[in-house]
């Protein structure tokens, strides 16, 4: 019935997609160049910035942010990086706060270390499971679901701690806070180990590939026979696990659980979103997240050394989020 001369093709011509690819490459290189330029500026102007001691110090400080950013990145991978409807876990920092309180309380109550750890990780994963249920089971937008659970979790933390600092100590905590191996501190080792493990799982196993597929195009993933809901759920539970792990590091670093852990949220988001800039697909990668976590660490450190108010750091992180989201939404090709 038809002699199709020119059936509708929604595809952009090859030239346009090449243009997009060039823009994407420019953004990647630009991000790296900006990163390098800022580092160079700090190295020249901030006394003590480029010393080995300072660099190791920053990397150690980045361990907590790094673990949490892995959780956020995995949620974004599995939920998709669409800003409004994609995967996001706003409760991540608050969850870490609650887990820290649980860990400090459990340790102070005399629980043996393995049980305290189990309780902490269990709390984090439980919160993650609830988030997953709200998102997958109830179909609530992740942005809203986790905003709500963030407040619930913060409330529980306040009830548990009565908004006080819970000091604590244990042999495990001293090993974590001051142990060294091959001249590198335990905290830095944790970050390295986590990067390697998460990196292997996300980039070298079918699990990672499937998570990217689920986040990239859920219907296509479903058509390929994947259980989309289970994968998305898993990402929130994993984020909860990260919150629990980070909580143990937080308590070891401060020898206490303190209120205000929730304020880490902005840094976590900035790190996870900034990390997408380093991938040609504009999706979070473990390498990209590590890079941006360290960048954010150096940024805060540089500001400190230049005696700038730390309040500026929040402002810069907020601006980074806006910039990254704007740039990647622009450069990401229109799909569907």
């Amino acid at each position: 019935m038809t002699m199709a001369l020119s059936p509708s093709s929604p595809e952009s011509p090859a030239g346009a997609s090449r243009g997009k690819a060039l823009a994407a490459a420019a953004i990647r290189l630009g991000a790296l160049a900006t990163f390098a330029a800022i580092m160079a500026y700090f190295a020249l102007t901030a006394r003590g910035f480029a010393t080995p001691f300072n660099i190791v110090n920053v990397i150690e400080q980045s361990a907590i942010l790094g673990i949490l950013a892995f959780g956020m990145s995995v949620v974004i991978i599995g939920g998709g990086s669409e800003v409004q409807t994609g995967g996001i876990d706003l409760s991540l920092a608050a969850n870490a706060g609650l887990c820290a309180a649980v860990f400090a309380t459990a340790t102070n109550a005399g629980l043996p270390a393995p049980m305290a750890i189990a309780a902490t990780l269990g709390t984090g994963m439980l919160v993650g499971a609830v988030n997953g249920f709200a998102v997958v089971g109830l179909g609530i937008l992740p942005l809203l679901a986790t905003l709500a659970s963030m407040n619930i979790v913060a409330g529980i933390e306040l009830t548990l701690t009565e908004n006080t600092v819970l000091s604590t100590s244990s042999p495990l905590l001293s090993v974590l806070s001051s142990g060294r191996f091959l001249g590198i501190s335990a905290l830095a080792w944790v970050l390295i180990a986590a990067s390697v493990i998460v990196g292997l799982v996300i980039h070298r196993t079918p699990v990672g590939l499937r998570l990217y597929a689920v986040g990239g195009h859920p219907e296509a993933a479903r058509a390929a026979g994947l259980n989309v809901g289970l994968h998305v759920w898993g990402t929130y539970v994993f984020a909860g696990l990260c919150a629990g792990l980070a909580a143990i590091l937080i308590v070891s670093r401060l020898s206490a659980s303190t209120p205000g852990t929730g304020e880490l949220l902005l840094s976590i988001l900035a790190a996870a979103l900034l990390g997408t800039v380093f991938s040609r697909r504009f999706v979070p990668t473990v390498g990209g997240t590590v890079l941006s976590v360290i960048f954010i660490g150096f940024l805060a450190n540089g500001f400190q050394l230049l005696h700038l108010s730390s309040y500026w750091v929040s402002g810069v992180q907020g601006a980074l989020i806006l910039l990254v989201v704007a740039v990647t939404s622009y450069a990401r090709p229109q799909e569907h």
Partner: peptide, 13 residues
């Protein structure tokens, strides 16, 4: 999946 490579799309799952 738009962000997958050809090889990944062929072998997904």
């Amino acid at each position: 999946v738009p962000t997958a490579t050809v090889a990944e799309a062929v072998f997904l799952n």
